[in-house]
Design a protein around this nucleic acid. Structure first.
Lengths: 193, 193
DNA sequence: CTAGGGTGTTACCGGTCTGTAACTTTCAGA
DNA sequence: TCTGAAAGTTACAGACCGGTAACACCCTAG
């Protein structure tokens, strides 16, 4: 009920959406499949008809999350067509907005923290998706005309990742509050080189 | 057996040390009290005679971890007495060494990710300890003669936190590989202001 | 109207989890 | 040597977990 997302769509979609939301809020090990199916307005058997296992469901959720993030990047291109530097600033702005709106951080990073078994099937998916996101940010920095594009992209990545996890430890008033300021002055200093 | 740390000391100490190690490696929800006591060469009843609950044990482990970190800071002062700038560089160096030696990141941050209940007793302890660490780093930056000490300290914090979580998602060859370079050029640019 | 696939329901399996009760063993200090 | 506290042992309670079996239902495509 608390997490109910029971609009009338097909069970598989409802399960996927509900699971994403609940994994995000309560963690992967903090949510059982029974709770997911109940919140999705269906039942366990239907879940297991559409997903091989809970691990499989987790992986599909991560892919869905990454797809959502990808759509945000499309927005940048749509809003500032061809202007890569403006898109980079939009990335900073959007990251900051998401930080303010939600304090549970990045699903992929959180999953990596929770799923400690080195051979867990989700781990290679996490790595894949994170590497793809890194490539995107590096490309954006390079196309924005920045010399040391990889270094800037990696620094921005660490800052954002750090801000998201810091929020979960000390809250929004901690170091993460200065994210935009840090990111912008970083971009400025890279552009000046 | 795998995690056995069964030197002959008092059971409480063995439990605490073993639990720290196992929580760190496998996560909090990934380890049961039975496994801890077995690895510590004792039994469940003894654990519950020394700790009120698993949550209580978790809190004691976090405090022990913070105490260990505190001892590292004492090393900085011992090795570079009075020279705060040298201590700041030592901090960067040490952080990098710990990143290379261990890929499971910060126990407190990991615990914050795992323990999602907002009223979990460990959460206020995590916040306390993290805030104390922040104070220390701010003071170090200030005493090293840096103008915007808070901003530098917070930026370094986010970079390190990000590096630790990034290692868990994409491994040591990802963005975290550039941590020292990022931190040092950051310090240099703050000193130049 | 009918066949059949998608869905819902109920019950269950074997395992794991935190936490406790009751009892026995060990061992150091008086 | 005796005593008393700390530690070990065994068994268990009660809950929850992921996953499956068997069966009833509904609803749409032909």
């Amino acid at each position: 009920m608390t997490d109910g997302v029971a609009e009338r769509s097909r069970p598989r979609d409802r399960i996927l959406e509900t699971a994403q939301d609940m994994f995000h809020k309560h963690g992967i090990k903090g949510v059982g499949v029974d709770a997911i199916t109940e919140a999705a307005g269906t039942n366990k058997m239907t879940l297991y008809r559409h997903f091989e296992s809970k691990d499989d469901l987790v992986i599909e959720c991560l892919r869905a999350t990454a797809a959502k993030a990808s759509r945000i990047w499309d927005e940048f291109e749509a809003r500032h067509p061809g202007d890569k530097l403006a898109q980079l600033h939009a990335w900073v702005q959007k990251a900051s907005e998401l930080l303010s709106a939600d304090s549970r951080g990045c699903d992929m990073a959180n999953a990596a923290v929770e799923l400690t078994e080195t051979d867990h099937p989700a781990r290679r998916v996490i790595k894949e998706l994170k590497e793809a996101q890194r490539e995107k940010l590096v490309a954006l920095c390079r196309d924005a005309g920045i010399g040391q594009a990889e270094l800037l992209a990696d620094t921005l990545s660490l800052l954002l990742e750090g801000a998201r996890v810091s929020m979960q430890s000390v809250g929004a008033e901690g170091p993460s509050a200065q994210f935009v300021r840090m990111a912008e002055s970083l971009i400025a200093s890279f552009r000046a080189r």
